[in-house]
Structures are given as structure tokens and as C-alpha cells.
């Protein structure tokens, strides 16, 4: 799915990645705000704190995906989180009177999202590699001035800074004050005579 665009020229990979980001934010908030609903439905009673921590992880990953210019590390973080989710859900299958059908559906859903996360991570990683492969150009010949900077330094000193752009003399930093006859030592002034 690397670099795919729809008929309108929009980047579908990025759209899916952003969708995953928002999904992560939504799931994270749900896990943080209603952990009991998850533990009740998936046979994980007593593990509410664990679900809350998973919620915080999802929220962080979602914000990372949405806010960063390169979401690749956050996407791989989601893949690792998916593995944790699958393992945790699988523990719900053990023992009697477990809601196996609900857990089975949840496992299938998480597996599907994991596949999407992996595909997006690989696609974004490939993009990053392609971008890195594009040789960085060297602009060290782009001086913009006819002679080296050392020779051009001060060439515009004929420019008169307008009155309203001047910094009043008493407000100038110390280096300038030394030029106007102020004490030239850098040593602290003790005030002793």
C-alpha cells in the first residue's frame, strides 16, 4: 500500500494511518474510562488496572501517530501493543464459563487490526527509506554574494538603520558598551575601594 493515491490525488496510505491514529485514541479513551466493560465482556475480571494501562498506551500511540511527521515508530509501537492485546485476550479463553465466542470475535478483530498496523508500518518505513536514499544535495556553492562572506562582511554598512529600529545605547549588551568607554573588565565588580 506504499504511496497509493486515490482518483483525487489523496494519499490513501496516510489516510489509513490517520484512521488508525484516531482509532487508537478512541480505544484508549474507552479503556481508560470504562475498563470494567472490557474485563466483563472478555473474561478478565480483576484486571481493570491492566486494561487502564493498555488504554494509556493506546492513547499515547494515537497522539503520536496523529502529531508526528513520521508516524512509523508509533505504528510499530501499535504492532507490539497488538501482540500484548492478543496474548491478554487469549488468557480469557482458559477455564470454565468463559465468553469464548465474544473473545473469538475480539481476537479476530485484533488480528485484523494487527495486519493493518503491520502493512502501514512497512509502507511508512519504506517511504522513509526511499526519502533517505534520495541524495541530500550539497549547496555549499550557493553563496549569493560575489565574494566570500569574509570579504562581504559589512558591505552594507552604508545602510542607515531607521531611528525607530535602533536599540537605545543604554539598552545594548555589554560588548557594545565596551566600545563606548565603559569598563572593559569581565571580572565581577566588588564595589570595594
Amino acid at each position: 500500500m506504499s504511496g497509493r493515491r486515490d482518483a483525487g490525488g489523496r494519499d490513501t496510505t496516510l489516510a489509513v494511518v490517520r484512521g488508525l491514529g484516531w482509532f487508537s485514541v478512541g480505544l484508549g479513551l474507552a479503556e481508560l474510562l470504562a475498563p470494567h466493560a472490557f474485563t466483563r465482556n472478555f473474561g478478565l475480571r480483576g484486571h481493570e488496572r491492566l486494561i487502564e494501562s493498555y488504554g494509556a498506551r493506546e492513547l499515547a500511540a494515537g497522539i503520536g501517530i496523529l502529531a508526528s511527521r513520521d508516524p512509523t515508530p508509533w505504528l510499530w509501537g501499535r504492532v507490539a501493543g497488538d501482540a500484548l492485546d492478543l496474548g491478554t485476550l487469549a488468557t480469557g479463553l482458559a477455564g470454565h464459563n468463559r465468553p469464548r465466542s465474544r473473545i473469538g470475535i475480539a481476537l479476530a478483530a485484533v488480528a485484523g487490526v494487527t495486519l493493518l498496523d503491520v502493512l502501514c508500518s512497512r509502507a511508512m518505513g519504506a517511504r522513509r527509506q526511499r526519502a533517505k536514499r534520495l541524495a541530500r544535495r550539497d549547496y555549499s556553492d550557493r553563496r549569493g554574494m560575489p565574494r566570500p562572506a569574509a570579504q562581504m562582511r559589512g558591505a552594507a554598512r552604508d545602510f542607515e538603520v531607521p531611528q525607530d529600529f535602533r536599540i537605545p545605547e543604554p539598552l545594548r549588551p555589554w560588548t557594545n558598551a565596551t566600545q563606548t568607554g565603559a569598563p572593559q573588565t569581565d571580572a565581577p565588580q566588588t564595589g570595594a575601594t
Partner: peptide
């Protein structure tokens, strides 16, 4: 942080 931008900056002194 971009090498090409820093190289252009250096060219300008």
C-alpha cells in the same frame, strides 16, 4: 538540522 540547509548557510558565512 537539514544538512543541505546548513551547507547553504555556511556558504553564506
Amino acid at each position: 538540522r537539514m544538512p543541505e540547509r546548513l551547507s547553504m548557510a555556511q556558504a553564506g558565512g
